[in-house]
């Protein structure tokens, strides 16, 4: 189906990616997964997802940088980004927002919390 929304999940923690993927697919979304920053960035440009879930601490390119690179590019700046991280300091939150991420969620998070945020952006 062409109107199935595509979600790209980028996180080096495979278990987290898998649980997120399972729940989001159960909601009827199509999920793509990447386990490092570089792959994640390339996939984002290739498949143009409707939304991205992005971890901060990752090998090669970190989440902040991916977000900044996408948000400063007219082609991709409209992709909503939900940042997920284990870091919780206020400064980190500020940096996250400066990079243009739309949402910011700290680990450990409730799956429902993520799903609700996703729905907010993808279902009007």
């Amino acid at each position: 189906m062409s109107n199935t929304k595509k979600i790209l999940i980028v996180d080096d923690e495979q278990d987290i990616v898998e649980t997120l993927k399972f729940m989001l697919e159960a909601q009827g979304y199509e999920c793509f997964c990447a386990y490092d920053g570089e792959t994640g960035l390339n996939m984002a440009k290739e498949i143009l997802p409707d939304l991205m879930i992005l971890d901060v601490m990752m090998p090669k390119i970190n989440g902040y940088k991916i977000s900044r690179l996408l948000k400063y590019d007219n082609k991709y700046k409209n992709i909503p980004i939900i940042m997920v991280t284990a870091r919780s300091q206020e400064d980190d939150k500020l940096i996250g927002q400066e990079t243009g991420a739309n949402e910011y969620i700290t680990k450990p998070f409730e799956l429902d919390e993520v799903i609700n945020k996703v729905k907010e952006y993808l279902e009007d």
């Binding site: 278990d15 987290i16 450990p108």
Partner: peptide, 19 residues
């Protein structure tokens, strides 16, 4: 925090009956 999130998520999936 990270492994805890994975455990929590898995439990939620099981409890939701979707698995």
């Amino acid at each position: 925090r990270t492994p805890l999130t994975a455990i929590k998520n898995s439990l939620e999936i099981c409890l939701s009956g979707k698995a």
